[in-house]
Simulated scan of single mutants.
Amino acid sequence: MIEVDGWRWHKDAKRNSEDLRRQNFLMNLGWRVLRYDWHRLRHEPEAVLAEVENAIKLKAGPR
């Protein structure tokens, strides 16, 4: 799962708490959660893409 966090949404403590609860729930189900903010997507797109590709390769396992 990939999630993009924005200041507009997370400026509220309740919303942030809900996101943390959801992430913990998903991780307990065995999901890998990658979280990014707009700054990284805008200024480091190659690094973000490399992280996503690496996560996909790790999930696929050895060939």
Rank of each mutant, 00 (worst) to 15 (best):
A13V: 11
Q23H: 09
R40F: 05
G6S: 15
G6D: 14
R21D: 01
M27Q: 12
R42V: 00
I2D: 11
G30T: 00
E51L: 12
A55N: 06
V48F: 02
L58Y: 07
D12L: 03
R42N: 02
A50N: 04
P45M: 02
L29V: 03
R42S: 02
L26T: 00
W9E: 05
R35D: 04
E46G: 01
R40M: 10
P62L: 01
K14D: 09
N24I: 11
R35C: 08
R35A: 12
R8N: 04
A50H: 03
P45D: 00
D19I: 00
N24D: 12
I2H: 12
V52H: 09
S17N: 02
W7A: 09
H39Q: 05
L20Q: 14
G6K: 08
W31G: 05
E53R: 14
N16L: 14
D12C: 01
E53A: 10
I56R: 15
H43R: 14
L34Q: 06
E44K: 06
M1I: 10
H10N: 14
L58V: 11
Y36K: 11
G61L: 07
W9S: 03
P62Q: 06
L34T: 13
F25A: 01
E3K: 03
R8V: 01
R42M: 00
H39K: 13
E51I: 09
H43E: 13
R15Y: 07
N16R: 14
A50L: 04
H43I: 11
G61Q: 10
L29C: 10
N28C: 07
E18M: 13
R32I: 10
G6Y: 10
H39E: 06
D37K: 10
E3M: 01
H39F: 06
L41I: 09
A55V: 10
R40V: 05
V52E: 10
F25Y: 08
W7N: 03
E51N: 15
R40N: 06
W7G: 08
N54C: 07
R22M: 12
K11D: 06
G6T: 15
A13R: 04
F25C: 01
P62K: 03
A60G: 07
L20P: 00
G61H: 04
V4G: 09
N54R: 15
D19M: 04
A47G: 07
R22K: 14
W9C: 02
N24L: 13
L41A: 08
R21L: 09
V52A: 11
E46V: 04
L29R: 14
H10T: 12
K57Q: 13
R63S: 12
L20E: 11
E18C: 07
R32V: 15
